[in-house]
Design a protein around this nucleic acid. Structure first.
Lengths: 144, 144
DNA sequence: AGAAAACCTATTGAATTAGTCGGGAAACAG
DNA sequence: CTGTTTCCCGACTAATTCAATAGGTTTTCT
């Protein structure tokens, strides 16, 4: 049950962009430095986020990335879903919304319900936190 | 955010043993067949569960495995923790209870709080479900 | 004695992860 | 118009993990 760096870095980068929201394009280089991520690797991740429509890019000198929506309109769940694919502790839970039941053992499989509950609880947490919330927390850092 | 087969199979096998609780030792072969798991692979997993004290084994003909505690005393969370290690969406969250802070960026890292919430919410779900609960559900299968 | 089972260690093929490498294309500054 | 900055793209790779498989040993019941 580990998140890959894709998800982690993706959220970190988006958070960084949220902190600079409204200040024009932010270069990937500066994001990578502040967040301690390999610049070239982050490049790939930003490509994914761009194709998903969460950031827009401006090329050339003084170019960079910026959010396409307000920080309050983007949840951590949105980002994770793009970077890691849909949350599903077991494959069995995928494509149930597509009508046909992927899992032949659905009738037998009692444990399936457990994984569904886990998935829902994760999604509830991730979907309830926006980038704006993270920016807020900056001010209370040191608690917990 | 996927569970490996270790966790899945582990829970499936323990559930199977719970269904037969009090009926003497259950052979690994029969568990593997009912749950659709490679017998030899399951063997390794049962070894882990045995060393952790959740099952006891009897060797020889008519031997097999049985739970060391009542199904109501073993949670899904217990099993997952043994099979997959402690739930921690990011490594950063490990060994914080050891006193020293593994994560140097803890002060900077705002996203850390998010992962902690995810971890807690997963644990809450997993720890609240016992093997006895799963055996109960057998009777209501088909809902959701 | 023979069969049924648990037990143990090693090996393997495939997939995933977390990057690196090297170049190309757009845009701005001078 | 030239050079630099920056994004863009595809291929490659080393390391790790996953999910088994293989092949044997030991214990215990019949």
């Amino acid at each position: 049950m580990k998140l890959s760096t894709k998800g982690r870095y993706g959220v970190a980068a988006m958070y960084d962009l949220a902190l600079h929201y409204g200040q024009g394009p932010i270069s990937l280089k500066s994001v990578a430095q502040r967040q301690g991520i390999s610049e070239h690797y982050l490049e790939q991740l930003m490509g994914t986020l761009r194709k998903a429509g969460y950031v827009k890019s401006i090329r050339g000198a003084q170019g960079g990335y910026s959010l396409t929506k307000e920080p309050g309109q983007i949840t951590v769940g949105n980002i994770i879903c793009i970077m890691e694919g849909p949350i599903a502790p077991v494959d069995c839970l995928l494509s149930t919304d597509a009508g046909h039941d992927y899992c032949q053992r659905a009738g037998i499989c009692v444990t399936r319900g457990v994984w569904a509950k886990v998935r829902d609880s994760i999604n509830q947490v991730l979907d309830s936190i926006t980038l704006a919330d993270l920016c807020q927390e900056e001010k209370f850092q040191g608690d917990e």
